[in-house]
Design a binder for these strands. Structure first.
Lengths: 198, 198
DNA sequence: TCGCGTTTTGCACCTAGTTGCATAATCGCC
DNA sequence: GGCGATTATGCAACTAGGTGCAAAACGCGA
C-alpha cells in the first residue's frame, strides 16, 4: 500500500495531473519508489473512488488533462500511514542470489555483470550527489527540510554501499578464479564441496 | 524469475523435499530472498513440469515426503541465469516514503517506527555477525567459499548502513521538532513551504 | 479544414509474491 | 485401535507491480 501514499504526498506538495505526477516521480519520489504512468493513473482512479482526492473542476473527458487535489480525508490517511507499524522490507536482490548460485555452478559471466552494476551504481551516486549539492548546499543551514535530506542521504548511502561491496566482490572473484582455476577460459567447474549449508 | 533459480541452487547443494527446502531457506537463502512453503511447492511443481528437476523414486502421494533432484537441464539453466544481464532492482523501501510524507504532513509517530526499525536491524546484524563467525572464522583462510562470504557481507553491510542511517535520521527528527515545534505534543503541522520539488 | 504527430488518459492482461485453508500420511499416546 | 498433534503437500483467491496497447483531445502545418 505504498504507491497511493506516495501519490498523496506528491499531490500535497502540488496538485497535478497524471502525467505531471509521472514526471515528478521520475525525478524525485521515483528514486525510491518507481512508478509508470499506467500505475499512477490506476491509483489516481482508486484514490478518487475512495474519496481521498478529487479532480479540480474541469471538463472531464478522455484525453483531456485532469488535475487532482488531496481532500482532508486524504491528508488524514497519510498522517495515519506515517505512524503505522510496518515491518522493514527484506532485501530481495537477485544479484546476491546469483552470487550464491555462482558459488555452486561456477562464476562464468558473473564478473561482467558485477562490473556493469558497479558502473550503474556509480552513475546513480553521482546523480544523487549532484542533487544534494543543488538542494542541500552545505552553507545553507538546514531548518525544516531535514527529513527530505535524510531520504536523499539514504539513497547516497545505499549507492556508496553497493559500490564498495561490488569492488570487494570483484576482487573475491578474481582471487577465487586464480586459486581454483589455473587455466583461464575454462568454464571453471565449481568446488562441489561436501558442504556447509551456507 | 528469481525464486526458481534460488531453489535450483539450494537443490544442487542438497536434494531435498519441499518442507526441507523451506527450512533451509529460512536460515540461509531466505535472508535475501524469503519464500513461504506455498511458494516453494508451487515453484517445485513448475520446475518439474519444465524438466529442470525430478522427484527421486518414491511413492508419490499427497502428504508423503517427495525429494527432488536437479537434472542437467536445471543446472544448465542456472549457469545461464548467473551470466544473464539483469538491471539492479530499485530500492523501494516504504520507510523512506514515509519520511518523505512526514516532511509534508508532520512526523507524528515516526520516531517510534524509526526506533523499532533500528532495533530490528541491530538484531539482524548481530545474527549475521554470529553466522560469519561460525562459518567464516578469520583464522581459516578462505579458499573457495569466497562468494558465499561476499553474499553474507552484503547482508552485514546493508544492516550496518541502515543502523547508521536510522540513528542519523532520529537525530534529524529531534532537531527538527526542537526547531519548529516548541510545545511538544502538538501534531506539529508541517512547513508547507512554497517549495522545491524535492 | 484536413490530416498527422503529440499529449494525456486509460483499459486489459500478465507475472510474482502473500494469505488462508484443505487434505493426506504418520506418530505417539491413551 | 482409535484420536489428536505433527509433518508434509498443495490448491485457490487476492494483491500489487509491469507491459502492451488503445483512444480521445490538441496543436500545427499543408
Amino acid at each position: 500500500m505504498s504507491l497511493p501514499h506516495a501519490i498523496l504526498t506528491a499531490l500535497l506538495e502540488k496538485p497535478s495531473s497524471g502525467l505531471e505526477l509521472t514526471r515528478r516521480f521520475d525525478k524525485s519520489i521515483g528514486f525510491f519508489w518507481p512508478a509508470t504512468h499506467q500505475q499512477i493513473y490506476r491509483e489516481l482512479g482508486r484514490l478518487e473512488q475512495s474519496g481521498l482526492i478529487h479532480p479540480l473542476p474541469q471538463p472531464p473527458s478522455r484525453g483531456q488533462r485532469k488535475e487532482y487535489e488531496v481532500l482532508p480525508a486524504g491528508r488524514a490517511a497519510l498522517v495515519g500511514w506515517v505512524a503505522e507499524r510496518q515491518e522493514p522490507k527484506a532485501i530481495r536482490e537477485p544479484l546476491l542470489l546469483r552470487l550464491r548460485a555462482a558459488a555452486v555452478v561456477g562464476p562464468a559471466g558473473l564478473d561482467a555483470e558485477l562490473r556493469r552494476h558497479l558502473a550503474l551504481h556509480e552513475r546513480q551516486l553521482a546523480d544523487y550527489l549532484a542533487i544534494e549539492q543543488r538542494d542541500f548546499p552545505p552553507e545553507a543551514a538546514e531548518t525544516e527540510n531535514r527529513l527530505q535530506h535524510a531520504v536523499l542521504r539514504a539513497g547516497i548511502g545505499m549507492e556508496a554501499f553497493w559500490i564498495e561491496w561490488l569492488n570487494q566482490a570483484l576482487a573475491d572473484l578474481r582471487d577465487q578464479d586464480q586459486d581454483a582455476d589455473p587455466q583461464p577460459g575454462s568454464p571453471s567447474d565449481p568446488p562441489s564441496n561436501g558442504e556447509p549449508d551456507r
